[in-house]
């Protein structure tokens, strides 16, 4: 993905500017690009992946999410619990639907993501 290459260069520039990692900046560029594979902590690509990632990762690692295998209803309850008990900001209804759909699709009781994850 070309966007990622560009961001790799960006980190590299920041590092160089501070004289940090002066030895092999190219190595770091590649590693940022290599993060393609580890991005989203192994969450499989799909509609709603980014919304889900950014809605959840502010508080905890996605590993707390990707361990689960819950039906759509149970995911909906989980998000209620996050909002009512854990101070999660209320999601826009459209985002919420996208997120619950994504979670139910890949992290349902059959744990489909286990066979599709990018890790």
């Amino acid at each position: 993905m070309s966007a990622r290459k560009w961001t790799g260069a960006l980190v590299c520039a920041a590092a160089l500017a501070w004289g940090w990692l002066a030895a092999t900046p190219a190595g770091f560029t590649q590693s940022a690009v290599a993060s393609d594979e580890t991005d989203f902590q192994g969450m499989p690509p799909g509609k709603g992946r980014e919304e889900t990632f950014y809605a959840c990762v502010v508080c905890h690692s996605m590993r707390l999410v990707t361990q689960q295998g819950l039906s759509r209803d149970r995911w909906d309850e989980a998000i209620d619990w996050m909002v009512e008990e854990q101070d999660m900001p209320e999601l826009e209804p459209a985002d919420r639907a996208l997120i619950v759909d994504y979670l139910a699709e890949f992290y349902g009781p059959d744990r489909k993501a286990d066979t599709q994850s990018t890790q």
């Binding site: 961001t7 960006l10 940022a32 991005d39 809605a55 502010v58 900001p89």
Partner: peptide
């Protein structure tokens, strides 16, 4: 902006990060 760019997406809850 640079962190968002690095991650390849905007960070909606950046104020909490």
């Amino acid at each position: 902006a640079s962190m968002g760019a690095l991650l390849g997406a905007a960070i909606p809850f950046h104020r909490n990060m």
